[in-house]
Amino acid sequence: MTDDRITAALTEAIATACRVMAAGGLVEHVLGHISARAGDHHLLVRCRGPREAGLSRTRPEDIKLVPIQGPAGDLDGWTPPNELPIHTGVLRRRPEVTAVAHAHPPAVVTHSLLDEPLLPVYGAYDIPGARMAAGGIPVWSRSALVTTDELAGAMAEAMGDRPVVVLRGHGVVSAAGGDDPVAAVRTAVLQAFALDTLARVTLAVRQAGGTPRAIGDDDLAGLPDLGGGFNVETMWRHLLTRLPAAD
């Protein structure tokens, strides 16, 4: 596949993933963005268009190529997200990362204000989410708009080598890698969905008067790896069915 065809496929994947995040309630209105590495020095990222209508209306023309280092330059009326440093900061510090998603799931934001860790409170119910929680979900204590390299660096340091980091009172950053950038975009979004599910269930336990507790080590160890074909491809096909019909 030629570079132009790869770029076109990745552009379409990012635009679709933005609409999936909106349809799934991970973002509201015009907030949130997704990026993917495009070569050694650039990334493709969802930008704000001249007729901005929110993530649910994202189209391929809203995805623009910008440098990982330095100013975005002329984007023909589009502007990069204010929090572009979230993407450039993670991509610069973690060469294995191919895609980055930033979302604002209300349940994750709410739980972050409790200042308590998210635990693997379930197992087979959502295996990817359980494994993510068992490995630890870091929290960055700042609730600032991440508009500078300094803030992005601190956020990336809090994230470490984990797939996600919760931004207290703000949202989530999810990162994924691999040889297939389209699959990485989908994985980054699916990780945000898994985190949202974990936060919603945890809050529901608290609202019912219970105390969230982690499942046992034996149950965690016994969870099977269902593979990317199920965890990514099948789940993604399902999420696509939730998109509203095109106008």
Score class of each variant (00 low, 15 high):
Asp3His: 10
Asp4Pro: 03
Asp4Cys: 01
Thr7Val: 13
Ala8Trp: 02
Ala9Pro: 03
Ala13Pro: 07
Ile14His: 12
Ile14Ser: 10
Thr16Cys: 02
Ala17Glu: 00
Cys18Asn: 06
Val20Tyr: 00
Met21Pro: 01
Ala23Ser: 13
Ala23Val: 01
Leu26Asp: 01
Val30Asp: 06
His33Thr: 03
Ser35Gly: 08
Ala36Met: 08
Arg37Gly: 00
Arg37Lys: 14
Arg37Trp: 09
His42Gln: 15
Leu43Cys: 14
Leu44Met: 09
Val45Gly: 03
Arg48Gly: 07
Gly49Glu: 01
Glu52Asp: 09
Ser56Ile: 15
Ser56Ala: 15
Arg57Ala: 08
Arg57His: 15
Asp62Leu: 07
Lys64Ser: 09
Lys64Pro: 00
Leu65Met: 12
Val66Asp: 03
Pro71Lys: 04
Pro71Gln: 12
Asp74His: 09
Thr79Leu: 13
Asn82Val: 14
Glu83Asp: 05
Leu84Val: 12
Leu84Cys: 07
Pro85Cys: 01
Pro85Trp: 00
Val90Glu: 05
Val90Tyr: 04
Arg93Thr: 12
Arg94Val: 01
Glu96Cys: 09
Val97Gln: 09
His102Phe: 05
Pro105Ser: 11
Val108Trp: 07
Val108Asp: 02
Ser112Arg: 10
Ser112Gly: 06
Ser112Phe: 04
Leu118Met: 10
Leu119Ile: 09
Pro120Asn: 05
Pro120Arg: 06
Val121Cys: 09
Gly123Tyr: 15
Pro128Ser: 01
Pro128Leu: 01
Ala130Tyr: 03
Arg131His: 03
Met132Asp: 07
Met132Ile: 15
Ala133His: 04
Gly136Trp: 12
Gly136Glu: 08
Ile137Phe: 08
Pro138Lys: 03
Ala144Phe: 08
Leu145His: 04
Glu150Phe: 14
Leu151Tyr: 11
Ala152Met: 05
Ala154Val: 03
Met155Gly: 04
Ala156Asp: 06
Ala156Gly: 02
Glu157Ala: 12
Ala158Ile: 01
Met159Leu: 13
Pro163Gly: 08
Val173His: 12
Val173Ile: 15
Ala175Asn: 07
Ala175Asp: 06
Ala176Val: 12
Ala183Ile: 10
Ala183Tyr: 09
Val185Leu: 02
Gln191Asp: 07
Leu195Thr: 08
Asp196Ala: 11
Asp196His: 15
Asp196Phe: 11
Thr197Asn: 05
Arg200Lys: 10
Arg200Gly: 08
Arg200Phe: 10
Thr202Gln: 14
Thr202Ile: 13
Leu203Gln: 09
Val205Thr: 14
Val205Lys: 11
Ala208Tyr: 13
Gly209Arg: 15
Thr211Lys: 06
Pro212Lys: 10
Gly216Thr: 10
Asp218Phe: 14
Asp218Tyr: 06
Leu220Gly: 11
Leu220Tyr: 05
Leu220Met: 14
Gly222Cys: 09
Leu223Ala: 11
Leu223Glu: 03
Leu223Cys: 07
Leu226Glu: 08
Leu226Gln: 13
Gly227Leu: 08
Gly228Ser: 09
Gly228Glu: 15
Asn231Met: 10
Val232Ala: 00
Glu233Asp: 15
Trp236Met: 00
Arg242Ser: 03
Arg242Glu: 05
Leu243Arg: 00
Ala245Pro: 11
